[in-house]
Nucleic acid binder design. Structure first.
Lengths: 225, 225
DNA sequence: TTACTTCTTAACTTCGTCTTAACGCTTTTA
DNA sequence: TAAAAGCGTTAAGACGAAGTTAAGAAGTAA
């Protein structure tokens, strides 16, 4: 499904132009003429991204962004600002903007920025499936763990587990997160099952002696390389 | 702990100026003069963010960014580009830039963009879990206390205790507050238990000789650095 | 069917953490 | 100054968490 964008822009001509352009580039766009209506639109639908003009009547972009953050801090926000607007620009970032675009809008740049923000926020479904761990490389799709010399083919669960670890390499991966993601439920048996898989993964990862999965007692695991 | 930035810039004057400015703003900066050395620096340390000049001898910024992504796709990249460079700019985004800055660099804007990118990539806006104590860094979430050289993994209670101390660094932390927060009850045994944990913490904190936990008789403790 | 793979369950072992106890030193109080 | 209370420290034990191996169970392919 194409990403859904909430566009709030009071300038009708620019607003319509942007909407048309974004739709041409396969985004779904909901255009609203001011902050108040933008907010109520945000209330009634799910969006993947908000594109907000800063200078607007009724409710300005920054205030709207604050309201949006209160409702759902996960949805990224990009501001549209006038070229001169330097101080406001900074305030905008302070209030949790993910990016901003200076008017007049360069359409290609806009697309690029939107895609960059979406890539970061939605670890996309097509997504990265190749990871490097020390000297090893791991491809989640083909479930191969590669040494340079030899290749080990992991099982489904092992691969899923390793992917989670890779996504938080050198950071704590919480046990509960794993159980919720891969088993859907946190109970004693799933926990034990996970430990078994972890043991198998450790064995596979011995291909590179520097790679280890360390345990944080009572919390989770860290994949270190 | 302050964010660690890998800065790769071949212009020595600009590079040094940026490094100085960023350090003034409490970032840790590793400055490298070209792509090759930038890559090897990236290999040997963990960074929170990379700031790469696009036009460089030996290895240009885009190529470097690609190599960096291969090693760790989670680390955000910001490019430094010349004003005119439009097509390259877009290529940069395609190759996974998180943002770019047009030269000549506006320092405040640079800081704002860095902070924006870091806020997005570092997942915990809710509760701060990273503290610095003297030369040490402590991450409550993963319970790691870091020296630069070595890392000690604390236990749950130790980590909780250290967090409380950090939150009131160089101020009195009342015994009763600790007991109420971490044990839920103030009695003789909990008090003794806390003292045991305190002793262990002191031992860990010997990593930096300047850091001490001093006792205020009958009142509580002060973490000094 | 048999052979094979993968995941779960079980059982046993090892390890880590927290509490409790003990002892000695320091500070406060009577 | 003596007694009491507060604190630093080490060690031992209990308990739960995690590592490990192997035996079922369930599914898949030949």
């Amino acid at each position: 499904m194409n990403p859904k964008i909430l566009l709030v822009e009071d300038d009708k001509i620019l607003g319509y132009a942007l909407k048309t352009y974004l739709e041409m580039r396969h985004f779904q766009v909901n255009l609203q003429p001011n902050g108040a209506e933008g907010l109520s639109a945000f209330n009634s639908e799910q969006f993947d991204l908000c594109l907000l003009d800063v200078m607007m009547p009724i409710m300005d972009g920054f205030t709207l962004a604050e309201e949006i953050r209160k409702l759902n801090p996960a949805v990224p926000v990009i501001f549209l600002t006038a070229r001169s607007m330097k101080i406001d620009k900074l305030q905008g970032f302070q209030k949790g903007a993910d990016d901003y675009i200076v008017k007049p809008v360069d359409e290609e740049e806009l697309i690029a920025r939107i895609q960059a923000v979406l890539r970061r926020t939605n670890p996309s479904p097509v997504s990265i499936s190749s990871y490097s761990i020390g000297t090893l490389s791991f491809d989640w799709h083909s479930r191969r763990l590669n040494d340079g010399a030899q290749t080990v083919i992991l099982t489904d669960k092992e691969a899923d587990l390793l992917r989670l670890l890779c996504e938080r390499k050198n950071q704590l991966l919480d046990r509960k997160v794993v159980l919720q993601e891969l088993w859907g439920k946190v109970d004693y048996f799933n926990r034990r099952s996970m430990d078994v898989h972890m043991a198998k993964l450790r064995k596979h990862l011995q291909l590179d002696p520097k790679v280890t999965i360390i345990n944080i007692h009572g919390k989770g695991f860290i994949l270190e390389d």
